[in-house]
Design a binder for these strands. Structure first.
Lengths: 198, 198
DNA sequence: GTCTACTGACCGAATGTTCGGTAAACACTT
DNA sequence: AAGTGTTTACCGAACATTCGGTCAGTAGAC
């Protein structure tokens, strides 16, 4: 009942969406530059040229995937819960939501986190990502100014390390194996905010 | 006085060592697969073919660089200080030393952390890296069993998150800009072991 | 008969690597 | 000091292969 007749008529096969999701999977396995259109064709079960019927090219696939990750992060920034309450409360909420977006859009965020700026597409994505990083940096600095973060550590360092732990999730998390986004966020916040030592 | 006449006679130019260090720099900028031998030649100030006078090929450059990172981590595991004392003390020491190796061999470790297993060389490096990861996992589990880590978080999750923060350092650390390896380790251990909240 | 979703043949450019040649620096003899 | 031979460190051209991408043609659903 969910999608009885999605479009008028279809011969069964691929559409831009399924091509994208499979392509992103291969990009994450072999790296974007290490993936050839031949690799994608093999994963899709069609020939190289069939891909160009659905999408304009390799770099457009990358651009669409990166936007999917970045749009999630920017929606997070625009949420009013990221702007009300004490800085430490907002920071905790933002960390939790970041983990949720990372888990919900795992392959897309994973791809984003590996971008190095080799093309215009990648540089544009990097610039949007840096905007998110600056947003986090401001939150940590505010929380420190409000006296809710221990004063003997540099806020800039804390920002990097805290979100280093968050982004590392994309490198080892396996959704099939139990833990939910909330489990991850709980463990992360307990460690980073409360400390591991008993 | 350091190197008056390193070898008998030399016309000034490159050697395998300088080629490696420059190549690793370019690999980290553009990614290994995104780097062509032409890119390397440009960075070295020679033509493509000159590179093959000093090193056997692109993949050998990668292999040598990855070994340089992995050898550091394996020396750490073999140190007796990683085997004496309580588990939490050993864990703290290993985290601190890992940060030091990461900083000392920054470009090599950075390259290692981005390997995805695209070739035999990469798969071999990944396997050695996993051995180090298992070593860390055992340390955390022991510390939890000895009651020195809060019991309300999964040791496997803690391992990943803690070393996620460590490895993230390679993605943002700039040696020129102040912080030393000890500064990084101090901030990391304060956050992860003591907690950020005052 | 028309549209969808492809295939297969092909293109020019870029890839990692090899090879023949060579100018300069050195060692050795005279 | 001059001449000879060898080694070092490279260049330029070419190699086969792979790359991302194009295009004419077509089988099958409507």
């Amino acid at each position: 009942m969910a999608t009885p007749t999605p479009t008028r008529h279809r011969k069964r096969g691929h559409d831009p969406e399924s091509v994208l999701s499979i392509a992103v999977g291969v990009f994450n396995e072999r790296g974007y530059d290490g993936t050839s259109m031949e690799d994608l064709a093999r994963a899709l079960g069609v020939t190289k040229s069939a891909i160009y019927y659905h999408v304009p090219g390799k770099e457009q696939l990358l651009a669409r995937a990166l936007d999917r990750a970045l749009d999630g992060l920017f929606e997070l920034m625009a949420d009013e819960r990221a702007a009300s309450g004490t800085a430490i409360e907002r920071l905790e909420w933002v960390v939790r939501q970041s983990v949720r977006i990372l888990v919900d859009r795992l392959p897309y965020v994973t791809l984003l986190l590996r971008v190095r700026g080799n093309s215009g597409t990648e540089q544009a994505a990097l610039e949007r990502r840096r905007e998110f990083d600056r947003f986090i940096g401001r939150l940590v600095t505010e929380a420190a100014a409000e006296g809710d973060i221990r004063p003997d550590v540099d806020p800039a360092l804390v920002t990097r390390l805290l979100f280093g732990a968050v982004t590392s999730i994309s490198e080892w998390y396996q959704p099939a194996r139990g833990a939910s986004a909330d489990d991850l966020a709980d463990a992360l916040l307990k460690m980073a905010f409360g400390g591991l030592r008993v």
